[in-house]
Simulated assay, not measured.
Amino acid sequence: MRHAQSRALHTYWQTLRLGSAAPQREDIAPQDISELLGHVFILRRIDPAHHVFRLAGTQLCDLYQREFRDQNFLSLWRGHDAVHVQAVLESSLSGASPASMVARASSMDMHQLPVEISVFPLRGPEGVVDRILGLFQPLDDTEPFRGRPVVRTTLREIRPPAVPGHLLPVSRRHTGDMQLHIANDH
Rank of each mutant, 00 (worst) to 15 (best):
D47H: 12
E67F: 04
Q71C: 11
A21N: 06
V40E: 04
T15V: 10
L37T: 11
A21K: 05
L55M: 12
F53W: 03
V52T: 08
D47Y: 05
A29G: 05
H51A: 07
I46P: 00
L18H: 08
L16G: 05
D47M: 05
Q71V: 09
A49W: 07
E35N: 09
L55N: 03
A56F: 01
Q14K: 11
R17V: 08
I46N: 12
G19T: 05
F41V: 00
F41Y: 12
L36H: 08
L9I: 03
E67D: 14
Q65W: 08
A49C: 06
F73W: 10
H51M: 06
Q31C: 13
Y12S: 06
F53M: 02
I46L: 14
G19C: 08
E67I: 07
Q24M: 11
Q31D: 15
T58A: 11
H51K: 04
H10Q: 13
P30H: 11
D32P: 06
H10R: 10
T58M: 10
Q24S: 11
A56T: 02
G38V: 07
N72W: 03
F73H: 14
E67L: 09
Q71T: 15
A8C: 09
R25D: 06
L18Y: 03
D62P: 00
F68T: 00
P23K: 01
T58Y: 06
T58H: 12
P48H: 12
I28M: 10
L36D: 03
Q24D: 11
R45S: 09
G19S: 09
P48T: 12
E35L: 09
L63P: 04
R45T: 02
S20C: 03
R25C: 07
R17A: 13
P23T: 07
D27I: 02
L60V: 15
P30L: 12
Q65D: 13
G38Y: 04
D27H: 14
A8L: 12
D32Q: 15
P30A: 14
E35P: 02
Q59H: 15
T15Q: 13
G19R: 05
Y64L: 13
F73K: 00
T15L: 13
I42D: 05
P23G: 05
Q24W: 13
I42Y: 04
H39F: 04
T15Y: 08
V40W: 02
Q14E: 15
L60M: 15
S20F: 07
E35G: 06
F41R: 00
A8V: 06
A21Q: 11
R25T: 09
A21R: 09
I28H: 03
S20D: 14
P30S: 12
L9Q: 06
S20H: 10
H39G: 02
H51R: 04
R44C: 03
T15D: 14
W13I: 07
T11I: 12
L43G: 01
I42E: 04
A29V: 15
R54D: 01
Y12M: 07
H39D: 09
G57W: 02
T58I: 13
F41Q: 00
H10G: 10
G38H: 04
Q14F: 09
L37H: 09
Q24L: 13
N72G: 04
P23H: 02
Q65I: 10
D62T: 06
Q14M: 10
